[in-house]
Structures are given as structure tokens and as C-alpha cells.
């Protein structure tokens, strides 16, 4: 198509889907947290990195394999998140939202700076789990098994999150507390606990993404920093009003970025920002947003 070999095209679309998986998981977590706490979690990238490091520590210190890490690392990151919410964020919940941004920015600097001090800027390798090594021939392209797994796993987790929030009783409480926390509290629901759990859950998604990323990218202290800025742009494009919107926007922008790498590689690092600018001009509230 357009003089581009089909193999390269499919390859980049797959890479785009993988990037999109991370955008979706991270922007989903940001949206869930923002809905409940009105905080843009700048530490999200640092906690994603923490998830990857948790898997790396688990493997190298305790011999815990990838599959257990996929379960345990999000729990660890979620626990760290619960502590962050209780110790820091709970204290500033009545202040201007900008303070939440500044506070979590500070936390991100502390976490990333600390890891960078100990491990340097270079990455640590994390091997692909044995079951997912090699590739499968799909007929039109050869797909490394692990890459396919990342897309499938993130889709499952995204839709599970969507299901919990939109279709379960817990999710109904959550949505109600987002609309009117005082009233929900008056009905006897422990809203402060829900807030803590929401933050923990949101960052656990980032931790999960970190484990998924570990075998693809190297486990490095800076892996979350640049990613989170792109995810912010994704969030602006999608708007944070809708859970499904976050997921769809994440994958869509990932694929668009992949396609840009095929047709105009110089622009691939800025394409998402350009799309953000266009969306701001055409539809300032975001594709799925409900205004400020």
C-alpha cells in the first residue's frame, strides 16, 4: 500500500497496538483516579516504572516468575498507592486541584530520582517468559508471541476495569461517589476508604502495565517519565469523562503513531501532540469529554 511493504505496515500497526495498550492502561488509571479524587496523578509514570522494577526484583531476589509478578507487582504498587493517598493526598483534598498535580509531581521526582541514583539511567534486562518466546505465523505477518500477549492482556484488563466500574454494584457506588461524595457518605458508604481504594486501583493498573512492559522495554528508572507526558496528551484528546473513551483513545492513538512511523517517521515522536492540538481546535472538551 502506497509503496510500503505490507510486512512493515503490519509490523508497525502491531507496535502501535502495543504502545496503545500502555496508553490505554495508563490513561484508564488516570481517568479513574481523576474521577474520584480530582487529582491528575503525575506519579503515574513513576509507579508504572515501580511495577516493572517490582517484577525485576521479584525475579532476581526471590526467583518469582513473570506470571506471579503479573499478579503481585500490581498489588505492591497498589499498596504503595494506598500509602501515598493516605499520607499525602488525603491532606490536600480540599485545596485547589493544581496542588494535587504539584504534589504528585514531587513524588514522581523522588521515586524516579531515587531509583536513578541507585540503578543509573541504563536499563536492566528482563527475560521474556518461556511460554511466550518465539513467534507465530499469522499468514500475513509473523508475530512474536509476547507482543500478541501484551495486546490481549491489556485488552482483558481494560475491559475488566470497564465492567467493574460500569456494571457492578461497587462500580455504581464509585460512580455515585464521583457525582456526590457527601450524599453517598450519608447513605453509610465509607467514601474515604473508597477514595483510597480507587487511587490504589488506578496505580495498580500502572503497575500491571509496568510488568507487561518489562520484557519489551528494558526496566529503567526513566521508562515512565516520557511515557506519562504522552499519556497526558492522550487524556486531553479523549477527555476523562468516559472509561470506554480512555480505552478507545489509547489504542487509537497508539495505532496512529505506529502508522506515522511507516509514512513519515520524523513526525512519529510528535504526532500525538499534533493530534491533541487539532482536537483542541475542533472539539476542546476532547473526543469523549463532558467539558471542564
Amino acid at each position: 500500500m502506497f509503496g510500503v511493504p505490507a510486512q512493515a505496515l503490519y509490523g508497525q500497526i502491531l507496535l502501535g497496538l502495543i504502545n496503545g495498550s500502555f496508553y490505554a492502561l495508563l490513561s484508564l488509571g488516570l481517568a479513574v483516579i481523576f474521577g474520584m479524587l480530582n487529582v491528575i496523578n503525575f506519579a503515574h509514570g513513576a509507579l508504572y516504572m515501580l511495577g516493572a522494577f517490582a517484577a525485576w526484583f521479584a525475579l532476581n531476589l526471590f526467583g518469582i516468575d513473570y506470571w506471579w509478578s503479573l499478579l503481585l507487582a500490581p498489588l505492591v504498587v497498589g499498596l504503595v498507592g494506598a500509602v501515598i493517598e493516605r499520607v499525602f493526598l488525603a491532606r490536600i483534598k480540599n485545596l485547589d486541584h493544581l496542588y494535587g498535580l504539584l504534589l504528585t509531581f514531587g513524588l514522581a521526582l523522588i521515586i524516579e530520582g531515587g531509583f536513578r541514583h541507585v540503578y543509573g539511567s541504563s536499563g536492566q534486562a528482563y527475560g521474556t517468559p518461556e511460554e511466550l518466546r518465539g513467534a507465530v505465523n499469522l499468514g500475513f505477518m509473523i508475530m512474536p508471541k509476547y507482543r500478541g500477549w501484551v495486546v490481549i492482556a491489556s485488552l482483558i484488563v481494560c475491559f475488566a476495569t470497564w465492567f467493574i466500574i460500569e456494571k457492578t454494584r461497587l462500580g455504581a457506588y464509585l460512580r455515585a461517589a464521583t457525582e456526590n461524595p457527601k450524599l453517598v457518605q450519608a447513605f453509610g458508604i465509607n467514601v474515604p476508604l473508597m477514595i483510597t481504594l480507587t487511587y490504589a486501583g488506578g496505580v495498580a493498573l500502572a503497575g500491571f502495565a509496568g510488568v507487561l512492559a518489562a520484557p519489551i522495554y528494558q526496566v529503567s528508572p526513566l521508562m515512565g517519565t516520557n511515557l506519562i507526558i504522552v499519556v497526558f496528551a492522550v487524556v486531553v484528546v479523549g477527555g476523562m469523562g468516559s472509561i470506554m473513551g480512555s480505552i478507545v483513545t489509547g489504542y487509537m492513538l497508539g495505532v496512529l503513531e505506529g502508522l506515522t512511523k511507516v509514512f513519515y517517521p520524523q513526525a512519529s515522536s510528535i504526532v500525538i501532540f499534533v493530534i491533541m492540538a487539532v482536537v483542541l481546535l475542533a472539539r476542546p472538551a476532547g473526543l469523549f469529554g463532558r467539558g471542564d
Binding site: 504534589l103 514531587g106 531515587g114 541514583h117
Partner: peptide, 13 residues
Amino acid sequence: PVITGIIFVVCVL
């Protein structure tokens, strides 16, 4: 960055 981050957190709190 760690010092910077701590100053941020202390200032905000």
C-alpha cells in the same frame, strides 16, 4: 531530583 521532589511535597503540604 529527590531533594527537588521533597521540597515540592513539603511546600504543598
